[in-house]
Each structure stands twice: as structure tokens, then as C-alpha cells.
């Protein structure tokens, strides 16, 4: 089966115009592109993506402007928004999901909205046909099947404990076991993320899941090269697929 590649960048870092350009580059080899709508306090992120959130907000990124940017993008890759529950809730759930639909957004990932609280947005996601993509963690244990069953779009399987960020080592024993449990209840594709930054790690992940998610490594390139990051993103992207 054809394995998927999912990339992530933080919107508005260094500017929303550049975000549009970077999305077009990522689309050359990404099946899905996660676009991070910045939040002042991104609890699930490590320091690389957290810093990108701060830069994006300082550079004037807003929810309304992000939707305008996404509307102007025309790529074959599926676009997914990753953000926290507060920006969605405060913007207004109905309005937020309506804007997702108008912007051609495929799904949304909300790390601080666990299964028990998904009622906060579920009716709006359904109303506008936006996939609510669940996260499953190494600590999910007996919750895995419940989460997998209700997932749609794809399942985001977190590779290891802690926050997002580049890791030297990725262990796969536990994650392979979780993938097997997910397969018992659903055909929804399973993508694995958190800490993946080398072609070798990506290959290991492809052996056990439907696809690999790479985030902090792209964000780090943008941190380093700013508005000139496009060619560096392309080069790294090619090495990872």
C-alpha cells in the first residue's frame, strides 16, 4: 500500500504570505498538510513549535487572516488545521467550522480537546463536514479502541511521551501494538508523529503505520531560514519521502 506523508508548519511564521508559499512547496510531496493556527499557550508543543507560535502572533497572524490565506491556496494535498480549543471556542464554533468549509479544510486536530469533551465541537464539525481527527497516545491503553472507532479523516498516533519536537530515538514496540489494536476496529488510516526528523525514522514508521507526520523539523528550518526557507523545505521534504 502507498504510504502517506503528512507535513506540518505553523501559519504566520514568518508571515502568512510565506505560509502560502511553503504550503505550495510542501504540496509537491505531501498527501496531507497540517497548518498550525497559532495559540499563545500551545501546551502540547515542545520549544521549537512553541517559539514559532510566538513569532506568528507577534507578526500579526489572526484566525480571520489564516482563513483568507487558506482560501487563496490551490493545492492537491488535503489541508488540516491544528489548533487549540480556545481559539476555536472564542471565535465561535459554528463560524469557525463554516470558515473551515469555505476554505476547503479537510479536518481539524485539537490536542487539548479529549474524547470526553468533543461534544464542544462535534455537531459543528458534522454540520460542515470537517473531520475531527483524534489523537491516540502511548498512555491511552484501554481507551485506544474507543478513540479509534470515533475517529475520522485519519488517526494521529503520538509516538512517545512528552511534547512535539525532534527526538534522537523513536521506539516502536508500543506503537506497533497500538496500531494493531486500532486495526481491529477501523480502517481509518493511522499516521504517526512526534519527534520524527530523519529519513531512517520515517522508514521505520512506514513499516508499522499508514503514514508519517513530520512537524518540528520543518518548523526548525523556517526558524533558521525565515522568508528564504522554501528551497530548504523542498530539499528536506525530498529526503524524507
Amino acid at each position: 500500500m502507498n504510504k502517506k506523508f503528512v507535513s506540518f508548519i505553523t501559519a504566520g511564521d514568518p508571515s502568512l504570505e510565506k505560509t502560502k508559499e511553503f504550503i505550495e512547496v510542501l504540496a509537491e510531496h505531501s498527501d496531507i498538510i497540517e497548518v498550525g493556527l497559532p495559540f499563545s499557550d500551545p501546551l502540547a508543543e515542545g520549544e521549537v513549535i512553541e517559539a514559532a507560535n510566538m513569532r506568528a502572533l507577534a507578526n500579526g497572524a489572526t484566525t480571520a487572516k489564516l482563513f483568507d490565506t487558506l482560501k487563496s491556496v490551490d493545492v492537491a494535498s488535503k489541508l488540516v488545521i491544528l489548533t487549540y480549543i480556545n481559539p476555536v471556542f472564542v471565535y465561535g464554533c459554528d463560524k469557525f467550522f463554516a470558515q473551515c468549509k469555505d476554505s476547503g479544510v479537510y479536518g481539524i486536530i485539537i490536542p487539548d480537546l479529549p474524547h470526553e469533551e468533543r461534544g464542544e465541537v462535534a455537531e459543528y464539525a458534522a454540520k460542515y463536514g470537517i473531520h475531527l481527527i483524534p489523537l491516540i497516545a502511548p498512555t491511552s491503553a484501554e481507551r485506544v479502541k474507543m478513540l479509534a472507532k470515533d475517529g475520522s479523516g485519519f488517526i494521529y498516533l503520538v509516538s512517545s511521551l512528552g511534547t512535539t519536537g525532534v527526538r534522537d530515538e523513536i521506539t516502536t514496540d508500543l506503537t506497533a501494538d497500538i496500531v494493531a489494536q486500532i486495526r481491529e476496529v477501523t480502517d481509518t488510516p493511522v499516521m504517526i508523529g512526534f519527534g520524527i526528523s530523519t529519513p531512517e525514522q520515517a522508514e521505520t514508521i512506514r513499516e508499522i503505520a499508514d503514514g508519517v507526520i513530520v512537524g518540528s523539523a520543518f518548523v526548525k528550518i523556517i526558524e533558521e531560514h525565515g522568508k528564504h526557507a522554501a528551497k530548504h523545505i523542498r530539499k528536506f521534504l525530498k529526503s524524507m519521502i
Partner: peptide, 13 residues
């Protein structure tokens, strides 16, 4: 109130 935490913490909560 409520319980809005990442999945990774849910079992502990």
C-alpha cells in the same frame, strides 16, 4: 469546569 486536557494525560486524570 470540565476536563480539557491532551489525550496523553487523560488516563492519569
Amino acid at each position: 469546569g470540565g476536563q480539557y486536557v491532551p489525550e496523553i494525560l487523560m488516563n492519569s486524570i
